[in-house]
Design a protein around this nucleic acid. Structure first.
Length: 356
DNA sequence: AAGACGGGGGG
DNA sequence: CCCCCAGTCTT
């Protein structure tokens, strides 16, 4: 029996029952695929329901404000996905009369839709024979065929794309694509794959050659860098000073407290000697720590954050200069803002206590 | 070709 | 601590 048929037989019996698999609606499929980019199914599923509930049709999403979309997206990460999603929705309204396209050549033009997502939408919605190549597919094919070419090098990407397309069952692209991804996610897992009970154990090159743990090969990138953030809590009449990241920033349109960043950790006196600090505050400004230093770990950077209550808000030199200031009406409304980091929200309690 | 981009879970 | 996840975009 062929690889494809064996795989699809496995899928019929062991495949997952996922909410977005019951539809052929390209908009719904697109929504799920954007959310699931680099995101585990369990993590993305609640967001999928939330978005579909808020925006049942692409026209609704296009009409929404970016603020509203980002707020719903909060906590999912890779925020450019949300911004691109909004742009794409507007493009669908403009260029396709509000009817979400299904063809690969059309959806690949939308921002945030790359080769994987375009193949997924095209195959799932209309059975266009395009093979998906995601992390699961790389792993399954690398092991089954014993390919040690790095999956994240240009040559490797090209090779795997070609092989995936050859392996695809052209008569059942939708089922096949979902089958190979489920097989990777549930059976041919990154760690502790279920090789002893595998339908392919006789043909799988990696298993026969004992290379399962070695494949796929992935070139490792650079490590993380450390960043030190100093957040200033400026209170005035039950209001709290917030700042909004501007255009061009990674965290565009997300909120945080006014802050300065330093290259290394430092004491309050050293911090007050920083040029940035002098620019914003008077020399006699009183700073007091709130809570302990927070370590926030991202994929490629470690953020060490300290919080300071600014003793007298009158010592702030110029509230319009440098920071994109914004007064939040009430401290408990902080949670309604799209904060950059979850730990900022957690510190609201500490700050509220300090306010008393 | 190489980096940047999040947050969560597993081993 | 390191790796991976229904990847894409920018430089």
């Amino acid at each position: 029996m062929s690889f494809a048929v064996t795989l699809m037989n496995w899928y019929r019996e062991k495949g997952r029952d996922l909410p977005w698999r019951t539809t052929h609606d390209a908009y719904t499929i697109w929504l799920s695929e954007i959310i699931l980019q680099q995101t585990r199914v369990e993590q993305g599923t609640p967001y999928f329901h939330r978005f579909l509930d808020a925006f049942p049709m692409v026209t609704k999403l296009a009409e929404a404000s970016e603020d509203e979309i980002l707020r719903l997206w909060q906590g999912l990460g890779y925020y450019s996905r949300a911004r691109n999603m909004h742009k794409a929705a507007k493009m669908v309204v403009e260029d396709f009369g509000g009817k979400f396209p299904r063809a690969y050549k059309d959806v690949i033009c939308l921002p945030g839709v790359g080769e994987y997502t375009a193949a997924a939408i095209a195959s799932f919605s209309s059975n266009e024979p395009r093979a998906v190549v995601d992390g699961n597919v790389y792993r399954v094919l690398a092991r089954y065929l014993g390919i040690s070419v790095p999956i994240n090098a240009t040559q490797g990407k090209k090779m795997f794309a070609e092989i995936a397309q050859e392996m695809l069952d052209k008569h059942n692209p939708a089922i096949y694509n979902q089958a190979i991804m489920d097989f990777g996610a549930l059976h041919c897992k990154p760690k502790n794959p279920l090789c002893e009970d595998c339908i392919f154990r006789m043909e799988c090159v990696a298993f026969q050659e004992k290379l399962v743990e070695k494949l796929p090969v992935k070139l490792k990138g650079k490590g993380s860098r450390n960043r030190y953030f100093h957040y200033f809590i400026v209170l005035e009449d039950e209001q709290i000073l917030m700042s909004k990241r501007g255009k061009g920033d990674v965290w565009t349109n997300l909120y945080e407290f006014p802050m300065i960043e330093t290259m290394e950790d430092m004491s309050i006196p050293d911090l007050m000697a920083q040029a940035d600090f002098v620019q914003y505050f008077e020399e006699d400004t009183a700073l007091e720590y709130v809570g302990k230093q927070v370590k926030h770990v991202l994929s490629h950077q470690n953020i060490y954050a300290r919080f300071y209550v600014v003793g007298d808000s009158g010592t702030l030199k110029n509230k319009k200069r440098g920071w994109n200031y914004y007064y939040c009406e009430k401290i408990d409304k902080l949670a309604k803002h799209k904060l950059i980091f979850s730990f900022l929200e957690k510190n609201v309690d500490l700050i509220a206590a300090k306010q008393l």
